[in-house]
Design a protein around this nucleic acid. Structure first.
Length: 374
DNA sequence: TGGGACGGAATCACCACAGTCTCTG
DNA sequence: TTCAGAGACTGTGGTGATTCCGTCC
């Protein structure tokens, strides 16, 4: 991680977050208890000396953006990702969406060394020693649940949604809130600078590159190539993920990420007696373990009233200025659609003349049936 | 003050087809 | 294990139909 220059919000221009303690080096982990980004040395200094500090809830920083706390580990990509990057990376195509991701538990104990963390066998956030252990857990979690069944988890009591609130939010608001989270690039900057900043930050987004004159081949994407796509799957995942969390506005606020892609029903709805906020890892309850084998997945963080108020205000501002603009993912398809014959707005079959024109066009294009670029 | 009528805005479904993905042999 | 082929799936825009909401009487 290289330090470039620091922005007003504490983020470096290349998304790298500086250590909140020494302010000199890039952070490598985030302590939820202290609400601080720390480098290894500072973490060792702060948390290394007493058992109380060691129990602080710490997680590694996302491998992709290197600015937010990692929430899941993808064994397929061998990377730890924050929620936003996870969404971006794994919503690219159905194949990627099938990657099994394991929510990252907090760092247990002291970090071994400051030089070799997050490498190979020392996956971020792991109380697991090796990738093998993570893979084992992954298989454990890889429960196949019917889509309809998964959907049913999204609603506590169908037909009685009016009065269902959590922590003062209605579910509808929660739903809105997660849409906020999706809009990652915009979220991270002020409204005025968002578009420009996006151009700078999301250089790997195909939409930003402006080079998608043909339908892109959906190859596996590296961890540094996040995409901005809002698919229905995303919404389902987000809905599942943030349904019960009151802190959706900040990616730094999460430590757990029970993605629906894990095909694990969201447990936070079922256990009626479990409070909405937890301060630590919950003890196993009968209800919890019956519906979900990993109780540590359901721990929303406790927020201070100030934090919450701040997030709520921010969320409300966002909601006011939200715009649901259609995003064009495939310029080639847009071009095709615009040139297609229509009858009352509906696509119509190509006429013979249209086919002839297309053939001529193809000949002019050296015989390749390349979609004309915009 | 409540209810119906009206108009504008918003939302949704429909269509064809190139390209991609998945499955099977 | 690799390859080829078939079939399923996705995404794209303009229009009309439908729904929603605010205003007026």
């Amino acid at each position: 991680m290289l330090k470039v220059s620091s922005g007003e919000d504490g983020y470096l221009n290349n998304w790298i977050h500086t250590c909140d303690s020494c302010q000199a080096t890039a952070c490598t982990l985030y302590c939820h208890t202290d609400s601080a980004y720390l480098c290894h040395d500072c973490d060792k200094r702060i948390h290394g000396d007493n058992t109380t500090a060691l129990s602080h809830h710490r997680v590694w920083i996302c491998d992709a953006c290197e600015a937010a706390p990692a929430a899941v580990t993808c064994s397929a990509d061998a990377a730890s990702l924050c929620i936003e990057c996870d969404i971006q990376v794994h919503s690219v195509n159905p194949l990627a969406s099938r990657h099994t991701r394991v929510p990252i538990p907090p760092i247990a104990g002291q970090i071994c060394s400051s030089s070799n963390v997050q490498q190979d066998d020392q996956l971020p956030g792991a109380m697991f020693d090796t990738k093998n252990e993570i893979a084992a857990l992954t298989m454990e979690l890889n429960l196949e649940i019917d889509e309809d069944e998964t959907d049913s988890w999204l609603f506590l009591e169908p037909g009685n949604t009016d009065n269902q609130t959590m922590n003062g939010f209605t579910y509808g608001e929660q739903l809105d809130e997660y849409v906020d989270v999706v809009d990652t690039c915009t979220e991270s900057f002020g409204p005025e600078q968002s578009s420009d900043q996006q151009q700078l930050v999301c250089v790997n987004c195909p939409e930003d590159s402006g080079s998608d004159s043909v339908v892109p081949v959906q190859t596996p994407r590296s961890k540094n190539q996040p995409l901005q796509e809002e698919t229905q799957l995303q919404k389902q995942q987000l809905h599942s993920t943030y349904f019960n969390s009151e802190q959706s506005g900040s990616k730094a606020a999460f430590t757990n990420y029970p993605s629906s892609s894990l095909r694990v029903p969201m447990p936070m709805i079922a256990p009626a007696g479990i409070p909405n906020s937890f301060t630590g890892f919950p003890t196993t309850t009968t209800t919890t373990t019956e519906t979900f084998p990993n109780p540590w997945l359901l721990i929303p963080l406790q927020f201070t009233s100030m934090n919450r108020e701040e997030k709520v205000l921010r969320y409300r501002e966002k909601r006011k200025s939200r715009k649901f603009e259609k995003k064009i993912r495939y310029a080639s398809r847009k071009a095709y659609a615009e040139t297609r014959p229509r009858i009352k707005g509906k696509f119509a079959r190509k006429t013979d003349k249209g086919i002839e024109d297309d053939q001529m066009f193809s000949k002019e294009d050296n015989g390749y049936g390349v979609v004309p670029s915009l």
